[in-house]
Simulated scan of single mutants.
Amino acid sequence: MSDIVRAKPFKVFFVVGEESGDQLGAEVIKSLRALIGERLQVCGIGGERMAIQGVSSLFPLDDIAVMGITAVLERLPTIIKRVHQSVDAVIAEQPDLLLIIDSPDFTHNVAKRVRKKAPHIPVVDYVSPSVWAWRPGRAKRMAVYVDRLLALLPFEPETHQRLGGPPCTYVGHPLIERLADLRPGPGERQPLGAGKKQLIVLPGSRGSEVTRLLEPFGKAVELICAQEPDVVVTIPAVPHQEARIREGVQSWAVKPYIVCGEAEKFAAMRKANAALAASGTVTLELAIAGVPMTVAYKLDWFFRRLKQMNRYVKIIGANTMVLPNLVLGDNSIPEFLEDEATPEAMSASVLRLLHDSPERQAQLDAFTRIDERMKLPAGDSQAGKAARAILETAGVLV
């Protein structure tokens, strides 16, 4: 069958809820243009990067880019208004495809309403909600209003198939295209025994994570340094948490170096011999950077209370909350959740990683398997694969 190229304009309506989605959206616009040229028309909701690519946003992302139960409740009237405004704009534009990117609490509310009012508009969801960790029933519900799901993690297509979710395609993770940022160059990471050992501590990027983990992490660091006095401790901070972290470490017995921003974080990872980290995307960054890690997480008060109130609701549906473990399909990375995340347990785990131990080597071996599972075919790119899947869903073959 010969390839079919649509002659008329191809209009995509974007619904993005935060900065990370803006980055993905901007890159996919570039790839769509590379495939179908100036026939591409873009509109919807986006941020600064998508504005450069021609998306004049209906409203600022700051209106809806909120995290945490309290922040959402405070902004709820505005968020509801923006959902309805977005739906009305999609119906008025009559795009060839609606592309929602991440931020499911907002974007999925738009998609569900569009499906009811205009079922002929194909809907693609770029970035799967974490149905493997929270509320697995969402997968089946999504199949009603999402025609294609573009996944960043290689295990997600099988997960959605098992849970009755929408058709799902693995398009790759942005981190696999940033190896030069994450992997040490010559001389950047000293081998164990060649000098002071470098420990990187990552208490999270959200205020609630930092609040819950900074104190036990500090006590764990104290125990580590009591046995390994030659350890240098570095904490990379995201800009909006820097002040909170600087204040929190004032009570630490061992004073860490604090660096700020993504570039400094990646530089610290390239030097690190081991890590103590909150569960999250940063664990995948560490795995790709080749840094053996110990991972901890404490649920916020809302989810902890919900677990106590309703024993029939299983909040965590996976056997692990650590992304590298989910990619690997095993628990190669040690994790300490809730009451398990004691300074004594975490420090003992990190100390094993600061030596040429079986535990350290097992993680280094596991990281090579992560590379194999996450890589894309030679010459392929994440945004390019996503763009082709979008066009295929809309019936445009290139």
Results as ranks from 00 to 15, higher is better:
residue 243 A to R: 14
residue 244 R to T: 14
residue 246 R to W: 07
residue 247 E to Y: 06
residue 247 E to M: 10
residue 248 G to K: 04
residue 249 V to T: 08
residue 250 Q to K: 15
residue 250 Q to N: 10
residue 253 A to Q: 14
residue 253 A to W: 03
residue 254 V to I: 15
residue 256 P to F: 06
residue 257 Y to I: 04
residue 257 Y to E: 13
residue 257 Y to M: 11
residue 258 I to C: 08
residue 258 I to M: 05
residue 259 V to Y: 02
residue 259 V to D: 02
residue 260 C to M: 14
residue 260 C to I: 11
residue 263 A to S: 11
residue 263 A to I: 06
residue 264 E to I: 00
residue 264 E to R: 07
residue 267 A to G: 08
residue 267 A to W: 05
residue 268 A to H: 08
residue 268 A to G: 13
residue 269 M to T: 05
residue 269 M to D: 08
residue 270 R to T: 03
residue 270 R to C: 06
residue 271 K to D: 08
residue 271 K to A: 15
residue 271 K to W: 03
residue 272 A to D: 01
residue 273 N to W: 04
residue 276 L to G: 03
residue 276 L to D: 01
residue 276 L to W: 04
residue 276 L to I: 06
residue 278 A to Y: 02
residue 279 S to I: 03
residue 279 S to K: 02
residue 280 G to T: 02
residue 280 G to W: 03
residue 282 V to A: 15
residue 284 L to A: 12
residue 285 E to K: 04
residue 285 E to Q: 11
residue 288 I to S: 08
residue 288 I to Q: 09
residue 291 V to K: 08
residue 291 V to C: 10
residue 292 P to T: 14
residue 292 P to A: 12
residue 292 P to Y: 13
residue 293 M to H: 13
residue 295 V to R: 05
residue 298 K to T: 07
residue 298 K to A: 03
residue 298 K to N: 00
residue 299 L to T: 11
residue 299 L to S: 01
residue 300 D to E: 01
residue 301 W to H: 07
residue 301 W to E: 09
residue 302 F to V: 15
residue 302 F to I: 10
residue 302 F to Y: 08
residue 303 F to P: 00
residue 305 R to C: 09
residue 305 R to E: 12
residue 306 L to F: 09
residue 306 L to C: 10
residue 307 K to A: 10
residue 308 Q to R: 11
residue 308 Q to L: 05
residue 311 R to F: 12
residue 311 R to T: 13
residue 313 V to K: 06
residue 315 I to C: 00
residue 316 I to D: 01
residue 318 A to W: 04
residue 319 N to H: 08
residue 321 M to W: 00
residue 321 M to C: 02
residue 324 P to R: 04
residue 324 P to Y: 10
residue 324 P to I: 10
residue 325 N to P: 01
residue 325 N to E: 06
residue 330 D to I: 00
residue 332 S to F: 01
residue 332 S to D: 07
residue 332 S to V: 07
residue 333 I to H: 09
residue 334 P to G: 04
residue 334 P to K: 09
residue 334 P to F: 08
residue 336 F to W: 03
residue 337 L to F: 02
residue 337 L to I: 07
residue 337 L to Y: 02
residue 340 E to C: 01
residue 340 E to G: 00
residue 341 A to Q: 09
residue 342 T to L: 03
residue 343 P to M: 09
residue 343 P to L: 04
residue 344 E to V: 12
residue 344 E to T: 11
residue 345 A to G: 00
residue 346 M to P: 01
residue 346 M to I: 02
residue 347 S to R: 04
residue 348 A to I: 03
residue 349 S to P: 04
residue 350 V to I: 12
residue 353 L to W: 01
residue 355 H to P: 03
residue 356 D to M: 12
residue 357 S to G: 06
residue 357 S to Y: 07
residue 359 E to G: 11
residue 359 E to P: 11
residue 359 E to I: 11
residue 360 R to Q: 05
residue 364 L to C: 13
residue 365 D to H: 13
residue 365 D to C: 13
residue 366 A to N: 11
residue 366 A to Q: 07
residue 367 F to Q: 09
residue 367 F to C: 15
residue 367 F to D: 08
residue 367 F to Y: 15
residue 368 T to F: 13
residue 368 T to Y: 13
residue 368 T to W: 11
residue 369 R to W: 05
residue 370 I to H: 12
residue 371 D to T: 15
residue 372 E to P: 02
residue 372 E to G: 09
residue 374 M to T: 12
residue 375 K to E: 14
residue 376 L to A: 08
residue 377 P to R: 03
residue 377 P to K: 03
residue 377 P to V: 05
residue 377 P to Q: 06
residue 378 A to Q: 15
residue 379 G to K: 12
residue 379 G to A: 12
residue 379 G to F: 13
